[in-house]
């Protein structure tokens, strides 16, 4: 009986972590859909969000309700600047070059954060209520629970905007056929900018949630590695895929970590990746062939 309870708790924790994967995955997919850029810096942008929050909350002494939106805003601003100055001038270059630019961007962010805050892991100020959460009898760490709720709300907002808003139509039209999007009067560069801004803001917000659970460090960008698996499993251009992939990877990592040991987490994740790619080269929900990199 206790074993079942343990299993339930592990699964809940996995789903909680998976929601954060899914959220970051959505950010990744947003950029890929609009601009066809594989943004490998997504994990580092997430990290940037965590440090920005720390800066506002601990450095400036702002309350969490102000520091969180400011961190998100920083992420969005960063995304807009990166799109305008690094990505847009590379329009038409080979996907590999753009991909490499994002890799470089990631390392630069790590360097900048180390310069500013040092290489040691840091804790974020507590801002989530820490009354224990029980679902049935299963215990769930409150931070994970609140992270799950926040991620779900943001993802739901994205899905709705994507389906029903005019900007969502512009984004999907651009993703489907860029030339045709221009031809009907859509300001395609603006769509690019919007996608990068929204995605990086989201990643920064996810960084605050991730950091509130496990603390922040210049290496927390490796979170992006799991997110990469998430979106490859789900399909690079599918929001739905990011959701399912996120939960799947979260669950598998939690199960592998609990029953096999922490060192098996990544192994299990990449095992899943290979399995899915063998069965479905476009990922579970993807429509485009994943370009060979």
């Amino acid at each position: 009986m206790t074993d079942w309870l343990f299993l339930a708790e592990v699964c809940l924790a996995g789903i909680g972590a998976g929601a954060l994967y899914a959220l970051t995955g959505v950010a990744f997919v947003l950029i890929y859909k609009a601009t066809r850029v594989v943004n490998l810096a997504i994990g580092e942008i997430l990290m940037l969000g965590g440090y920005a929050f720390l800066g506002f909350a601990a450095g400036w002494g702002l309350p969490a309700w102000a520091a969180l939106p400011l961190a998100v805003l920083c992420g969005g601003l960063f995304g807009a600047v990166v799109e305008r100055t690094l990505i847009r001038p590379m329009l038409g270059e080979s996907p590999i070059s753009v991909f490499m630019v994002t890799v470089g961007l990631g390392s630069m962010l790590v360097g900048a954060v180390e310069l500013g805050w040092g290489a040691d892991p840091l804790r974020l100020p507590e801002f989530v209520p820490n009354r224990p959460v029980f679902i049935g009898e299963a215990y769930l760490a409150p931070k994970v629970a609140y992270g799950f709720v926040a991620a779900s709300l943001v993802i739901a907002a994205f899905v709705l905007a994507f389906r029903f808003s005019r900007s969502g139509v512009a984004l999907r039209a651009t993703a489907g056929d860029q030339g045709a999007a221009y031809s009907v009067g859509i300001d395609v560069p603006r769509v690019f900018s919007l996608a990068w801004t929204a995605a990086c803001a989201t990643a920064a917000g996810a960084g605050v949630l991730v950091g509130s659970i496990g603390g922040i460090s210049p290496t927390m960008g490796v979170f992006g590695l799991s997110v990469l698996v998430v979106v490859i499993v789900g399909g690079l251009d599918s929001i739905m895929g990011a959701l399912v992939g996120g939960l799947l990877v979260g669950l598998i990592e939690a199960l592998a970590g609990a029953f096999l040991g922490g060192e098996y987490k990544l192994l299990a994740t990449f095992g899943l990746l290979i399995l899915i790619l063998m069965l479905r080269p476009y990922g579970l929900f993807g429509t485009h062939e994943i370009e060979r990199l």
Partner: peptide, 22 residues
Amino acid sequence: MEGRRVFEDLTVEENLTAATFA
């Protein structure tokens, strides 16, 4: 454009909505 170039993953209505950006 040649070849019609409709947005295939969008509904007919959404295709028209896309054109409202013009």
